[in-house]
Write a protein that binds this DNA or RNA. Structure first.
Length: 613
DNA sequence: GCCGTTTTCGGCCCGACTGTTTTCAGTCG
């Protein structure tokens, strides 16, 4: 774990403990906000901590928080964190993961029924001790039992402290799209879309939010009916007038990444929200989030004497919130709320794409951000064939790429050290280059390049000698083994690869696999600076299992003006479909088309590749 | 504990829903 992750986790725990202990909620929230700020940093916070002013320049970090971070970096712990831990059983924290349990309830469970962890909570339920707690009736207990069962299934069985498993972006999105399609065919002509973190393109998804705008009660009823009875629904959690919640069972695996027993056993929660058509824009903003973005928008509205909710933007005529919400009192809205654009405009903001709604500075925009799009991508520089571990022949790969409108495809099979992936010996590589040249003569309408995905060995040397690399049109250098190195060793290793004059792309720079392994934690600022100087592109591997660079790293690369490569690491024709996940990650980082080599016209791209020969 | 086009104090987002209550507290997104 990087020190950023460690500090974020400690600050987050402090926030949770303060909540449970009933301390000042704004103080607790400040710790949670600081945790988020540290988490979304691309630089090692330990380096920033040398100068407290640098820490304090971060949004949400003030003098006291800077002291705490500095304390962690110099001593390896935060004293106040230990003190809080001494004031309550640590087993209480994971109870916050259980749906319906918040800090206040957990506090009374602890102080009035002696609950200290999940096991004692279950015991207290069985013994009936919970009924004695205020506001705890039989119905609440039944719901709690259900929520515990769901929590345990998500956490992979015994609920042994494992965090509830979030779904990969690439698993969740096709499910959401199928549901939208199904609802649209059940009730034609109604506006339906998914929202939430899925629409923002987060790498993992907690639940799936679907929005629909029925035009009358009959359409609303049919939508709810279709939603709660669709194939795959395991249980209906709620079905009211304006919203319904179901659990949907998942498929049983992750394709070539193997099975995911915990995800398969459980399911994903899906919520359907019904909103009036005239509120579609405000509702989409509201349910797309992020929460932090929404809070910032509302604060902005307040400063303009307005109040923003999921129904629209209204004059602030009830600052103490004594009355019913404005839309219920017939207060006239200050703008139409049927589109997101009109609501943003009324707040004096350009349209902000969902991927940048994280309250990481986007509200300072005065012009709409022009971010990279899937349609901009015209080349694939990282693809495998049957020569190593791919499923397509060279010709099949080229034809697939051509059918997707690409002008260039690079054949980059694995190098010799990746034995399990069928990595090519030097002799096989030379034959393979000839085979690629032959295919290039045979297939028209696309440029086929001979390349390699070359292993970056543990010490930073590449898996082929320079005289071999020189013969290749494209070199993608990637770490595959020794992924537990210290940050210092990993940084030196990857810098050495970037500095090799024949390398074009640094492939999946950290080697992480989401929900599987953390990968390397190199000093990303140093890699970005070196890559920029050497004209090397940092890859955003678009497979939903990797998304590496991740969003925060992409943001740092974009800010530095470093080249990036959006590559699908094709092993199977369907891998081309993953491009959109990488594009969303790039957009979350603020990447524009011109800094992504895959968007360049053929002559510019080929000239860049040749500049390293 | 943070923050400032109400700047060193006094704020700090908003509504739906649920289950518990006889008017509201807690959770969620």
């Amino acid at each position: 774990m990087s020190s950023n992750d460690a500090i974020a986790r400690i600050l987050h725990e402090m926030s949770q403990m303060m909540d449970i202990l009933g301390e000042d909620s704004f103080r607790a929230a400040a710790h949670a906000r600081a945790a988020r700020a540290v988490e979304s940093l691309s630089v090692d916070v330990a380096k920033l901590a040398v100068d407290k002013n640098q820490l304090r320049s971060l949004d949400g970090i003030g003098a006291k928080m800077a002291d705490k971070i500095h304390e962690y970096v110099t001593t390896g712990a935060i004293r106040e964190h230990g003190e809080l831990l001494g004031r309550l059983p640590s087993g209480l924290l994971c109870l916050l993961e259980i749906q319906g349990l918040g800090p206040k309830t957990i506090r009374s469970l602890w102080q009035q029924a002696g609950v200290t962890d999940l096991a004692s909570l279950e015991k207290a339920i069985d013994s009936g001790a919970l009924l004695a707690i205020p506001r705890m009736g039989q119905k609440s207990i039944d719901k709690l039992k259900q929520a515990i069962a769901f929590y345990k299934s998500q956490a992979g069985g015994a609920g042994e402290g494992a965090a509830a498993r979030r779904l990969h972006l690439g698993i969740a999105m096709p499910i959401a799209e199928r549901v939208v399609e199904l609802l649209a065919s059940a009730v034609p002509g109604v506006k339906i879309a998914f929202a939430g973190s899925l629409r923002r393109g987060k790498e993992t998804i907690g639940d799936i939010d679907i929005l629909a705008a029925p035009r009358d009660q009959a359409e609303a009823d049919r939508l709810t009916q279709a939603f709660t009875t669709m194939p795959g629904v395991v249980s209906v959690l709620a079905a009211g007038g304006t919203r319904a919640s179901v659990q949907v069972g998942l498929g049983d695996g992750l394709g070539r990444w193997g099975r995911d027993p915990s995800a398969a056993a459980a399911g994903v929660q899906m919520d359907l929200k019904l909103v009036p058509p005239e509120s579609w824009g405000a509702a989409m903003m509201y349910f797309t989030g992020s929460k932090e973005h929404n809070v910032a928008l509302r604060e902005r509205a307040r400063k303009k004497g307005l109040t923003l909710n999921e129904y629209g933007l209204f004059p602030e005529d009830d600052p103490d919130r004594k009355l019913e919400p404005p839309q219920k009192r017939g207060v006239a809205a200050v703008c139409k709320a049927d589109t997101e654009e009109s609501v943003y405009a009324a707040l004096g903001l350009p349209y902000l794409p969902p991927e940048c709604r994280e309250n990481l500075g986007e509200l300072a925009s005065t012009t709409p951000p022009v971010l990279i799009e899937v349609a901009d991508i015209k080349a694939e520089l990282h693809a495998h064939t049957t020569a190593s571990d791919g499923r397509l022949s060279i010709i099949e790969l080229a034809e697939e790429a051509r059918s997707r409108g690409f002008h260039t495809i690079a054949v980059t099979d694995h190098s010799r050290s990746s034995a399990v992936a069928g990595g090519l010996s030097v002799e096989r590589l030379l034959d393979h280059i000839n085979a690629v040249r032959a295919a290039a003569r045979q297939v028209t309408g696309i440029t086929i390049l001979a390349g390699s995905e070359v292993d970056i060995l543990a010490d930073g040397r590449l898996d082929y000698d320079d005289d071999i690399l020189r013969m290749l049109d494209v070199v993608v250098a990637s770490p595959h083994a020794a992924l537990s190195q210290s940050p210092e060793v990993a940084t030196a290793r990857l810098l050495k690869a970037i500095e090799n004059p024949f390398v074009h792309v640094l492939g999946h720079p950290t080697g992480r696999q989401i929900n599987r392994r953390p990968g390397l934690s190199p000093d990303m600022q140093m890699l970005i600076a070196a890559a920029k100087e050497r004209n090397v592109a940092l890859e955003i591997n678009t497979h939903w299992m990797r998304l590496d660079l991740r969003d925060a790293h992409a943001r740092a690369a974009a800010a530095a003006g470093c080249l990036v490569a959006l590559d699908s690491d094709v092993h199977d024709p369907s891998d081309f479909d993953n491009l959109r996940y990488g594009v969303m990650t790039a957009r979350r980082g603020g990447v524009i088309a011109s800094q992504c080599v895959n968007t360049w016209p053929a002559d510019r791209l080929h000239a860049w590749l040749k500049s390293k020969r």
